[in-house]
Each structure stands twice: as structure tokens, then as C-alpha cells.
Design a protein around this nucleic acid. Sequence first.
DNA 1: AAAACCCTCAACCGCGGGGAC
DNA 2: AGTCCCCGCGGTTGAGGGTTT
Length: 334
Amino acid sequence: MGRPPCCDKEGVKKGPWTPEEDIILVSYIQEHGPGNWRAVPAKTGLSRCSKSCRLRWTNYLRPGIKRGNFTEQEEKMIIHLQDLLGNRWAAIASYLPQRTDNDIKNYWNTHLRKKLKKMQVGCEGGSFGEGFSASRQIPRGQWERRLQTDIQMAKRALSEALSPEKPSCNLSASNSNPSDSSSSFSSTKPTTTQTVCYASSADNIARMLKGWMKNPPKSSRTNSSSVTQNSFNNFAAAGADTASSIGAKGPPSSAELSENNFESLFDFDQSFESSNSDEFSRSLSPEATVLQDESKPDVIGAEIMPFSLLEKWLLDEAGCQEKLVGCGDDAKFF
DNA sequence: AAAACCCTCAACCGCGGGGAC
DNA sequence: AGTCCCCGCGGTTGAGGGTTT
């Protein structure tokens, strides 16, 4: 019969989101929680289709999203999971709770695919090429059985990556402070720059909302027609003063996080959490979802908790993984 | 300095799954 | 049982920024 296009209505806006639209959306979700996207445009007055609102939230505004450079560990995880799962980006993203499927997909398409191609050419017939692509020829039943095992293997690999006593692990000792608000992953970048946390991190949204209260859109809008994502991030930062302070290349300093910001952040997350926690927990693997349910308040610190939970999950199961996976498998892994 | 080319990533599109009726 | 509606997913696009020539 054919499905009518979701966004064929006239007057539905497309293209990049403006800071004003973002704030409207975040404010609405702060109040009602994510979900019921169909109602969002009508209730907020946004000239966007429901799908666009959902996408904007899940891919950009949702708290706890880490943006910017992928760490080596993340890269390896993606490569391996892609090999295991194929282009099931949402499933892959469930193992990297701070990354969106869109981000992972983009990263794969722009970086990793080329990288792998290069490496496979470089290691023609070598050990690297062998580990990959084999699973794609496996019939489905077999594939599913193997997937079970492979997921265990992936968990084991991540466990090892996160394990502090492993010298090969990229987790830097300098970041061992559990109260450090930067994520475990952000500390794993072994070589270059710090990982970037943009506006989508909960603290920035909290600041954005705070700033919004102080500066309603009329007064705050100076360049809305040419506003970019990054400029929104700058806008979101307290005071929205300098572009270099946060937006383009660096996480906000802890000094920027006032007590009020944290309060509003928690308020935000609690309302969002209590009313509808599905967005985040859905994004986790089934096992991880269980953990999320067990420790919901912890999700609030989404910059940290997903991986603390993941660590727990991994370490708890380390024993059983030992039985499932032979020691030699690590070499194949990464 | 300017043009051409390349790269990145936010956003869109269309399809499929699943629940509600 | 069949249909409709909502939501999520994966593929794709194109604007804008960066790099090279």
C-alpha cells in the first residue's frame, strides 16, 4: 500500500538545527522525558518532524554522548564488533554506550574502512586479514552460535582493555581517580588529543538551559542563520563567550562546572530518567541493560557510569569467559 | 591567495519490526 | 487476522571545513 513519507508536510523544516530549536527540544525533554516523538513537534511548536526531533536528541543532545576522537580501544572494539555483527551499528553502539550508532557508522565509513582496507592490503594473507571477514560467510545458524561466543570474546577483550593491571592497557594511571568526570575512554587515547565532549554532554546541556533562562532567544540570538553545531556548543557553554573555550577542540574545564550546573544537570537527568529511561537503557546490550536497571541513579553521571558498569559486567564474567575462550584468542582479537 | 579537491559528520530518507486497535 | 501507527535502524547525501596544489 505504500507508506506515506514521514516529512512530506509543508512547513516542516529541514537542515541543521539552530540553538533555539535545540533548547526548545531539550527543555521539552527535560520536562517530559524522551519518547512519544510524534507529539513533540506539536507540543513544542517546532517545525520539525518527529523523526528529526528524535534523531537530534539521540545523536546529539542526549546526555552522556562522547564526541570527538575515537580512542584506539574504541577503534578496535568497533573493528571487531563490525566483523562479528556486520553493519549493525546500533548493536555495535550498545557496546560503546557513549557513542551513537550514527557516530560509529560515520567513523567506520570515513576512517576504519579505509584503514582496514589499507591494512589488509599491507598484510595480505597475514594474521590481521584472517581474523576478519571470515564470519560473513558463515550460515546464519552457525553465525548466531558463533556470535554468542564472539560476544563473550568481545567482552573479554574489553575487560582486558579496561583492566588496570594490564601493562598493555591504554588506560592511563593518571586518570585513575574515580571521581574524575572524564570518561574511562577519554583517557585511553594513547597518542594525540583529548577526546572532545561537546554540547551533548549533560553538563553542557545543563549550562545551556541555565544560560537559556538568563538569555532568552531574542537576546541571545546573534547569528542564528549561520549557526553551526560548534557555535551552538559555544552558546551552550556558560556565558557563551569564547569559541575556543569549549566548542571546537576540548572538553570544558571542571572549573566551568558550577554547583548550580550540576544541580540542574541532576534535575534534568532525574526527570528524564524517571519518566523514561528507555533511550539509554535500550542502547545497551541486554546484559548491560540489566545493570542499568540495577543501578539507575548511576546513569546520571553518564560520562562515567556506563563504563564503570561495563567494567563490572565484564569483570564479573571474566571467570566464565576464561572457560569459553582460549588464551590464544587474544591475538586474533585485536 | 585562490581554486580545486578531499574529508567529515549532521541530517535525511526509506524500510522493517512490533505494538495497538 | 489484518491494518495502522510509531519508532528505530542502516544507507546515503550534501554542506561546510580543511588540505593540497
